[in-house]
């Protein structure tokens, strides 16, 4: 139970993310979420992600992209993490994203889970957190590190 419902697990980590363009990167992470049974309707989910992206690109300074949405297609609040050596353009002013965090929140999710996502968002602006993820080699270790950092 704990492993399946944890915010992020090893199979949600992609250390060699397809980097052709944003859709390829987002698609790869979304498929991981679907395979893990966390997203029911892939088309719906990708549409929701894209809708958020259209509102305002989610790329952040420092090589980070955080495609995210609340979607009825999401069953469990989840995080999928992808790392790209070449970088994927998420619309940040200072260039492509090397760390991509896909945050999937269910529609009307309860506050406890939102708190976890909030904790994650807070870590994203810390340098040590980014450095650890840039240097990591093992998906299982990445998932465990993120879980430990956000207290999930």
């Amino acid at each position: 139970m704990t492993e399946q419902s944890a915010l992020i697990t090893a199979d949600l980590v992609d250390l060699d993310l397809p980097s052709a363009n944003r859709r390829a990167a987002v698609g790869a992470l979304a498929e991981r979420l679907q395979k893990a049974g966390r997203v029911t309707d892939l088309t719906q989910f990708l549409a929701d992600i894209e809708a958020r992206e259209q509102q305002m690109p989610t790329g952040l300074e420092g090589g980070i992209g955080i495609p995210h949405c609340r979607s009825a297609a999401v069953t469990v609040p989840s995080l999928a993490f992808g790392r790209s050596t070449a970088g994927v353009d998420f619309g940040a002013e200072d260039g492509p994203a090397r760390l991509v965090f896909m945050i999937a929140a269910p529609e009307g999710g309860d506050t406890d889970h939102m708190t976890v996502l909030a904790a994650l968002a807070r870590r994203l602006v810390r340098k040590a957190f980014k450095d650890e993820l840039l240097g990591a080699t093992d998906p299982g270790h990445v998932a465990e590190y993120i879980r430990k950092e956000v207290g999930a």
Partner: peptide, 29 residues
Amino acid sequence: PTGIAHTYMAAEALEVAAEEAGHEIVVET
């Protein structure tokens, strides 16, 4: 807009920056 990512990242960034500059800050997310 979605209230799940930027809100908290901005809060963290402001808290860190304020502390470094030697000011007290309280953030309402």
